[in-house]
């Protein structure tokens, strides 16, 4: 076991993890944050996307013990009590949520994109979200949601 200190959603957390545990497992099973989803365990679907030191990564491919001291932001960090983050609100309003299993990962990826590129072209949105699989929507409403969020956040 390895004693690991992480800053998760702004809160210092300390936990003991086995050598081979992924950050996704740690978040879901030890830290009570099941928002990040496990759909492939090999970085092919993006459902487990989180920000690690502000960079978008698949948490299933992060070795928790190797991430000691890092800052992690998950979908649970977005929005506040009773108020959705504009990206979250846009996903609701645009009908970009169906089964919702891919949604947390997509929201984190869209949030990361808009922070870097406030007014992305459609193609830039597509390239930025190409690592997040959705099986329900066919992506049209997701593209619309990201553009809606961009307008809400930056083009008032």
């Amino acid at each position: 076991m390895n004693d690991v200190r992480l800053r998760v959603n702004g809160v210092a957390r300390q936990t003991a993890v086995p050598d081979h545990e992924s950050l996704l497992t740690t978040l879901r099973e030890r830290l009570g944050l099941p928002g990040s989803k496990n759909a492939c365990e090999q970085g092919e679907c993006g459902s487990c996307s989180v920000l690690m030191d502000s960079e978008l990564v698949c948490s299933c491919l992060v070795l928790t013990a190797g991430a000691d001291g890092r800052a992690i932001e998950t979908v649970e960090s977005l929005g506040a009590d009773g108020v959705l983050h504009p990206v979250q609100q846009a996903f609701v309003d645009a009908g970009a949520v169906q089964c919702g299993f891919c949604t947390p990962g997509l929201i984190v990826a869209a949030y990361a994109l808009l922070r870097e590129n406030p007014e992305p072209s459609d193609l830039e949105v597509r390239e930025a979200l190409s690592g997040n699989l959705c099986r329900c929507t066919g992506y049209g409403t997701i593209l619309a949601a990201v553009q809606r969020a961009s307008r809400a956040m930056y083009r008032r």
Binding site: P34, K37, V75, Q88, V92, G100, T103, I107
Partner: peptide, 12 residues
Amino acid sequence: DGVPKVRGEFPY
């Protein structure tokens, strides 16, 4: 169920 789903709170 849209709001809990975008918050990551919907229990699968």
